[in-house]
């Protein structure tokens, strides 16, 4: 894919987002040489990390020596722009981030935070992974997921529909079906 004549590779960005949470285990995981190597092997050139309230600071890199260019920030009002320009999104398991990414049709790896007290969030990620809309990983298995993933096999997520609920509510209250 790289444009070898100029020595400039096509920019392919991985965007990592933890939302408003603190998820150092994920930031630490994407900062490991194992994960970065796998990302490079898959042709990604840039890594942008939104680290939220976490305290672990990843190492920045310009990526000039052919390695992955790494940048990070805590919060931003333009998460949507980062998602839009990403070629791959690695996200925490919050439903907001998951559906925003799926709606943009971006390949997504959801990493479940195993330190959360009430960890119901893995339910959603696992269900959507079973339906082949995304990949689901743990911080320590992220490099294996990246190595094994086949983005072609992911299915687009059909957008949700609130009309069935609205219909039942209207019927219950005695409103006519349509007007």
């Amino acid at each position: 894919m790289g444009d070898t004549e100029d020595g400039i590779k096509l920019k392919k960005t991985v965007f990592v987002t933890v939302g408003t949470t603190c998820f150092d285990a994920l930031v630490r995981a994407v900062d490991t040489p194992e994960v970065k190597d796998e990302l490079l092997k898959r042709g990604y050139t840039h890594l942008i990390i939104q680290m939220g309230r976490g305290s672990y600071t990843p190492t920045k890199s310009g990526g000039d020596d052919g390695s992955l260019a790494v940048d990070f920030f805590t919060f931003s009002s333009s998460i949507a722009d980062h998602l839009r320009s990403a070629s791959l999104v690695i996200s925490h398991a919050g439903s907001g981030s998951i559906f925003e990414t799926l709606r943009l049709g971006k390949p997504l790896i959801v990493v479940v935070n195993e330190d959360l007290m009430d960890n119901h969030q893995s339910e959603l990620a696992e269900e959507l992974a079973e339906r082949k809309h995304l990949y689901c990983a743990r911080p320590q298995t992220l490099n294996q997921t990246i190595a094994a993933m086949n983005l072609e096999s992911l299915l687009p997520y059909p957008s949700g529909n609130a009309i069935p609920v609205a219909k039942l509510i209207n019927q219950f209250l005695g409103f006519p079906d349509d007007k």
Binding site: S95, F99, H120, Q121, E123, L124, E126, E127, G160, V165, I169, F172
Partner: peptide
Amino acid sequence: FYVESIARVRR
């Protein structure tokens, strides 16, 4: 009217 969150799949 109560709509359980989409995040609740099994419980």
